[in-house]
């Protein structure tokens, strides 16, 4: 079975309506099915690793959104599920994100290490 690297870069598109990032969700589903999968957060998606995200409190008329997305917890759950989860250091730096803001267990790698990361997987699912 191929070892898959799932690359997530698009962030906060539809996450309120879906209560998930669709690719983090898909990657976790695939892991649960027994696939050897890793996740790379790059671009704006590095912010998914930031702790303390809060998308609660939205109302639309009398309609309340009682179950908001919890992307930081989703990242922690991926890590807890033994999905190696990487984040690009320069993409953190570009956005002013400090290392103490991000989830424990995230593997911080530099852009220059991406080629090795790609080489270590059989298939690249670049969403």
């Amino acid at each position: 079975m191929a070892k898959i690297l799932s690359v997530v870069e698009r962030a906060y598109h539809g996450t309120i309506e879906e209560q998930d990032d669709t690719i983090l969700w898909l990657s976790h589903m695939i892991k649960n099915a027994g696939t050897d999968i890793s996740v790379l957060l790059r671009g704006n998606a590095v912010n998914y690793g930031v702790m303390g995200q809060d998308a609660s409190g939205l109302t639309f008329g009398e309609v309340q959104m009682d179950v908001p997305p919890t992307l930081d917890t989703d990242v922690l759950n991926l890590i807890a599920a033994d999905v190696p989860t990487y984040v690009v250091s320069e993409d953190l730096d570009d956005r002013g994100i400090q290392r103490n803001e991000i989830a424990d267990g995230l593997k911080v790698i530099s852009r220059s290490e991406l080629a090795d990361l790609f080489d270590s997987h059989d298939s690249i699912w670049h969403w």
Partner: peptide
């Protein structure tokens, strides 16, 4: 379901993932 994508991928010669922006 997503499991079908995994099964197809395993059975195929190659897989092209075309994400959105």
């Amino acid at each position: 379901a997503p499991g079908d994508l995994v099964a197809w991928s395993n059975e195929s010669d190659n897989t092209l993932i075309m994400g959105t922006r």
